[in-house]
Amino acid sequence: MSDVLNNLVASPQTPGTKHYTPFAATDDVNAQADRRIAQYPPDRKRSAVLPLLHIVQHEFGFISSDAIDWIAGRLGIEPIKVLEVVTFYPGLRQTAPGKYHIRVCRTLSCAMGGSYELMEKLCELTKADLSKMDPHHHPIVVSPCGTWSVEFAECLASCGTAPVCLVNDDFHEGLAPEKASDLLKQYND
């Protein structure tokens, strides 16, 4: 039984793990959390669960069990209430992505514009194996070198300039599959 529970908050290593420092409740992270918590009425701290999860994911790449405990402590709620949020939202991850995480839009207008072909090309170039994708536990695939990870996202709301993708926080549009290689070059180390 405890294995089942532990697996829910486990963050198995990925080739991308080396790019991220393990979670630590630093002064900076606590100060960011204070600012977010202050945005909600004092008796409604639970509202800050998503903002705090975003801080953690932005700073440390993914949501570890230590981070879940820290958020629960900061908001005065049980860790399960943080975990239920983590496991619901497609935008939150429990394992390390690559240094650059690519989200390709999969939905109708982008698919008509060639987003599946774009994804194929990206996987070919980064050697990420899309068949390894397990939508329930590890919806992203990290390349063997750890630099890249890919994921299909649902509608990124730029259907007029299809196909589109996000690389970390940068938005790219009008990405015909043949532009895949140029896209990756922008992020090469």
């Binding site: 945005q39 409604r44 639970r46 509202s47 800050a48 669960v49 998503l50 903002p51 999860l53 975003h54 908001l75 709620i77 209430k81 239920e84 949020v85 619901f88 939202y89 497609p90 935008g91 939150l92 996202a153 649902e154 509608c155």
Partner: peptide
């Protein structure tokens, strides 16, 4: 204030959005 979602379509439904803003599953 700005409150960021986390990639769920259902948060566009107004009561789902409210649940999300309260820090729960939407």
């Amino acid at each position: 204030h700005v409150h960021r979602g986390a990639g769920a379509y259902i948060c566009g439904e107004e009561t789902g959005l409210i649940e999300s803003l309260e820090g729960k599953r939407p």
